[in-house]
Design a protein around this nucleic acid. Structure first.
Length: 700
DNA sequence: GTAGGGTTAG
């Protein structure tokens, strides 16, 4: 037999059974044999193209394809499917267009790839025209094509929804889901993929009840939920925070023996974390046989959501060490941990990682970076990132507004809030927390009232505790104590101890003992063990010489077994964190710090500052009283100077000592060594010391 | 042809 006829014979058997060619080498050999004998018909070429594409030899397939002047259907199909498989979606779509232009009629095998390409390219219009073509060809009863159609509608309508306003999604979603539903209803036969597609469509559109209903319905259609179904519905329970339903599914998953599935695993990790059961998340995570970036990130995010910031950072490092490459989502999850811990050096490292990874244009990451820089004291860097963002949503606006508010730039924060509204971004409840905080820090009582009222009147938002607390705080600071009392008493939500506590401290500042007593009783009624309230009241009684009342209160504390929890502040310097717990004198430079504090106090008094020692407990000598007046922030500022200075160097206190607007006591000093700006974060407030620009001002 | 994790506040 000639080589030409043997090749032809081989092709014939291949058409019947193409799996006989298994390696790339065999495929290329066969192709070469045809070229040698010059007998490559269109049919044979198509078979070789499909062999090439099955073996992922896209380049070879493409070259051979372009030698054909009128490629047959099989050749087109192989090429289109292979483009889609290799994620070359736009080439898949343009090949489909070319195929139609060449007059070839596609069959049912082509459409799943084409529709997937439309989905990935977010090209709904093209997808709809493909749908029309499917109907014209009478292929609208093909199982795979219908599944792909449903997936496309569910995904693209959901995706478009995220990019437009929530209202639009709300208005358009039902009819859009209908098109998915319509395809679904008309299908003559449905398999588990069809059910899973509609379940995840509902779940991802937030239509949780419908998603769950479909899971129940699939049972009556005799189709068992599989790993796909379960990983689609578990997030529903995370959202609902229904840990019992989630546990039921967990049990089912274990009985089915699919509990090591990474998809289900990360859903379970997330579900337990969102239900504040982080130990269960850890357990599920530790049992996973394989961990990818999503399963790692589910736990990282879980730690952050539960305030376990150090563990989040540790696991993030663990992920990197395990050679699992963090995706963009990982950064937006872990950055808040840096923000909360004020670890600027780590945040900067992550920022570098983000830029190198090419994730520089992601709204989630940018908003997280804005927040991180601002919480770590570098409002300039935060603002720079914010200004460079192409689009701003309510989250990024809120992050920058809150940043300015916390840095004491109340007016700037308010004008940013106005700008946000002008740009057509609707403030949400968090944005109102930010703007009210800003008003509170600069004493804009009337503005705050206006904003507070606009929440309900203009935006239909119900004020929450934080909003009430901000207004109450503002009224209190402005000395409108009675007004604040009435305001809190008439809240639509039951006031908590912490709302009353802001008023109590205002009473203390404005020395209104009578009202303070009323407020304290309100606090003890809802929170009988509120330590802060006891301490404040004791101090107020002491400064008024009301020893009897004070003794009574102290006895009450003793009976309740209350002990003051030590407060803690910390400062990061040269990649080292220096922590100071109140009453703890273990810091290696504590002696110098206290010495320096004394010097600062003396300097301040020379400048005319009169220490108000009346609020300090009476059984302490005058010298100690003055020392006690220094809060954490001052101690930290001084600590910074001490740590930052070689031993033996004199630190001079400059003449222009300032009193911090927020905490009423602050110092301004210049160390001889650096002229850095010193920023202290104490609870949620920032104190700026020194002059010059922050080393982090130019963040890169 | 189908699936999982993310940013602001508290």
């Amino acid at each position: 037999m000639s080589s030409s006829s043997s090749a032809k014979a081989l092709i014939k058997t291949l058409i019947k059974n193409p799996t006989r060619i298994k390696t790339k080498h065999q495929a290329k050999q066969l192709h070469a044999q045809f070229l040698r004998t010059q007998s490559l018909s269109h049919t044979s070429a198509s078979v070789i193209i499909s062999l090439y594409t099955n073996l992922k030899l896209l380049h070879e397939a493409s070259l051979l394809f372009h030698t054909l002047d009128s490629p047959p259907v099989l050749a087109w199909k192989s090429l289109i499917r292979s483009f889609a498989d290799q994620s070359l979606f736009s080439r898949a779509l343009s090949s489909f267009v070319d195929m139609r232009a060449s007059g070839r009629c596609p069959d049912h095998n082509v459409f799943p790839s084409v529709l997937k390409s439309c989905t990935m390219m977010s090209d709904l219009r093209f997808g709809e025209s493909v749908h029309g073509y499917v109907i014209k060809l009478g292929l609208d009863c093909d199982l795979y094509t219908c599944n792909a159609l449903m997936n496309m509608y569910a995904k693209l309508q959901g995706m478009m929804g995220l990019k437009t306003s929530a209202r639009k999604v709300f208005d358009e979603m039902p009819q859009r889901i209908d098109s998915v539903r319509k395809v679904f209803e008309l299908m003559p036969r449905k398999d588990v993929v069809s059910w899973n597609t509609i379940v995840s469509g509902y779940a991802q559109s937030g239509m949780y009840e419908d998603a769950l209903r479909m899971v129940r319905e699939m049972g009556s259609d005799d189709i068992k939920p599989d790993a796909f179904t379960l990983s689609s519905v578990l997030p529903v329970f995370s959202e609902y925070v229904d840990v019992n339903k989630g546990r039921e599914i967990h049990g089912y998953v274990i009985r089915r023996g699919i509990d090591a599935d990474v998809y289900i695993g990360s859903s379970l990790v997330d579900m337990y974390a969102k239900s504040a059961r982080i130990e269960d998340s850890e357990r599920v995570f530790s049992h996973l046989l394989r961990r990818d970036s999503i399963s790692y990130n589910s736990l990282v995010a879980g730690y952050v959501q539960n305030g376990r910031y150090n563990e989040a950072l540790k696991l993030f490092r663990g992920m990197v060490n395990a050679k699992v490459r963090p995706g963009p989502v990982a950064f937006s999850s872990v950055l808040p941990a840096c923000a909360h811990l004020s670890t600027l050096h780590l945040g900067k490292q992550l920022h570098g990682y983000v830029l190198r990874g090419g994730y520089g244009d992601n709204m989630f990451i940018d908003s997280a970076l804005v927040d991180m820089y601002s919480k770590c004291g570098s409002i300039k860097a935060a603002r720079k990132i914010f200004d460079r963002m192409n689009v701003h949503d309510e989250v990024s606006w809120t992050a920058i507004i809150m940043g300015h508010a916390l840095h004491g730039h109340g007016h700037e924060a308010v004008s940013l809030f106005e700008e946000m509204k002008l740009k057509g971004v609707k403030p949400n409840d968090v944005a109102f927390v930010a703007v009210l905080t800003a008003c509170s820090h600069v004493g804009l009582v009337d503005k705050a009232w206006g904003y507070f009222n606009s929440m309900t009147e203009v935006y239909g938002l119900n004020p929450g505790l934080e909003h009430y607390a901000a207004v109450a705080d503002l009224l209190g600071r402005a000395g409108k104590l009675e007004e604040a009392f009435d305001f809190i008493s008439n809240m639509r939500v039951d006031p908590t101890g912490s709302v009353w506590s802001t008023l109590l401290s205002s009473c203390s500042v404005h020395k209104n003992l009578e009202l303070a007593e009323k407020v304290a009783e309100k606090i003890f009624a809802v929170d009988s063990e509120n330590m802060g309230a006891y301490v404040l009241m004791c101090n107020m009684y002491a400064s008024n010489g009301r020893w009897k009342e004070m003794a009574r209160l102290r006895l009450r504390m003793k009976k309740l077994g209350l002990r003051k929890k030590p407060a803690c502040s910390w400062i990061e310097f040269k990649n080292k964190t220096h922590g100071f717990v109140s009453g703890d004198r273990s810091h290696s430079s504590m002696e110098r710090i206290n010495e320096f504090l004394k010097e600062v106090m003396e300097q301040m008094e020379k400048e005319g500052y009169v220490a108000d020692t009346s609020g300090v407990l009476h059984d302490v000598d005058e010298e100690h009283k003055r020392e006690l007046l220094f809060g954490h922030s001052e101690r930290l500022a001084v600590a910074f100077g001490i740590i930052n200075t070689e031993p033996g160097t004199t630190i001079r206190v400059t003449k222009n000592i300032r009193i911090c607007r927020d905490c009423h006591v602050a110092i301004k000093f210049i160390s001889k060594i650096t002229e850095r700006e010193i920023i202290i974060r104490d609870n949620s407030r920032f104190h700026h010391f020194n002059r010059g620009s922050c080393s982090c001002g130019d963040y890169w």
